[in-house]
Amino acid sequence: MRTMQVREAKASLSALVEAAANGEPTTITKHGKPTAMVVPIEQGRKLYPQGSQKDFVDFLLQYPGGIELERNQSPSREVEF
């Protein structure tokens, strides 16, 4: 696996993409610490399956303690038409 700094990665993005297409992941570092990784699409799909994206409401409803919603049904202001 290859490692490079952000500055170097920006300058050689096409090479990073080509390496990933050939199955070679690359770690990108910032100030010497690993911060990102460019991986082949197959590996990325294993980590983040396409069908797993849910909307924000579903995300909130999965909260372990549950969420009780109370809505104020009264209008926030009186409007005359």
Rank of each mutant, 00 (worst) to 15 (best):
1 M>S: 09
1 M>V: 04
2 R>Q: 09
2 R>G: 02
3 T>W: 05
4 M>P: 00
5 Q>F: 07
6 V>L: 11
6 V>Q: 06
6 V>S: 11
7 R>E: 07
8 E>H: 10
8 E>M: 08
8 E>W: 05
9 A>D: 00
9 A>V: 01
10 K>W: 07
11 A>L: 02
11 A>C: 00
12 S>L: 05
12 S>M: 05
12 S>P: 00
15 A>E: 11
15 A>M: 07
15 A>Y: 02
15 A>K: 06
16 L>I: 08
16 L>T: 06
17 V>D: 11
17 V>A: 10
18 E>T: 08
20 A>S: 04
20 A>V: 03
20 A>W: 01
21 A>F: 01
21 A>Y: 03
23 G>M: 01
23 G>P: 01
24 E>N: 04
26 T>G: 05
27 T>P: 00
28 I>S: 07
28 I>Q: 03
28 I>F: 03
28 I>K: 07
30 K>V: 10
31 H>Y: 11
32 G>I: 04
32 G>T: 08
33 K>F: 08
35 T>M: 11
36 A>M: 12
36 A>E: 11
36 A>H: 14
36 A>F: 09
36 A>T: 06
37 M>N: 04
38 V>Y: 08
38 V>E: 09
39 V>Y: 02
39 V>F: 03
40 P>W: 01
40 P>N: 10
40 P>T: 01
40 P>A: 03
40 P>F: 00
40 P>M: 00
41 I>K: 13
42 E>D: 15
42 E>T: 14
42 E>H: 12
42 E>Q: 13
43 Q>W: 09
43 Q>P: 05
44 G>Y: 14
44 G>F: 15
44 G>R: 06
45 R>K: 15
45 R>Y: 13
45 R>C: 08
45 R>T: 09
46 K>L: 05
46 K>N: 03
47 L>P: 04
47 L>M: 15
47 L>I: 07
48 Y>C: 08
48 Y>K: 12
49 P>K: 01
50 Q>C: 03
51 G>D: 15
51 G>E: 14
52 S>E: 15
52 S>G: 09
53 Q>C: 12
54 K>L: 02
54 K>C: 02
54 K>E: 00
55 D>Y: 01
59 F>T: 15
60 L>P: 00
60 L>F: 02
61 L>V: 05
61 L>F: 05
61 L>I: 01
61 L>T: 08
61 L>H: 04
61 L>S: 07
61 L>C: 06
62 Q>W: 07
63 Y>G: 06
63 Y>H: 13
63 Y>A: 10
63 Y>F: 12
64 P>M: 06
65 G>W: 09
66 G>E: 14
67 I>Q: 10
67 I>S: 04
67 I>R: 06
69 L>P: 00
71 R>Y: 09
72 N>D: 15
72 N>G: 10
73 Q>T: 15
73 Q>I: 14
73 Q>S: 13
74 S>F: 13
74 S>P: 03
74 S>L: 15
74 S>R: 15
75 P>I: 07
75 P>Q: 15
75 P>K: 13
76 S>E: 14
76 S>P: 03
76 S>M: 11
76 S>K: 13
78 E>V: 12
78 E>F: 14
78 E>I: 15
79 V>H: 07
79 V>N: 12
80 E>R: 14
80 E>T: 12
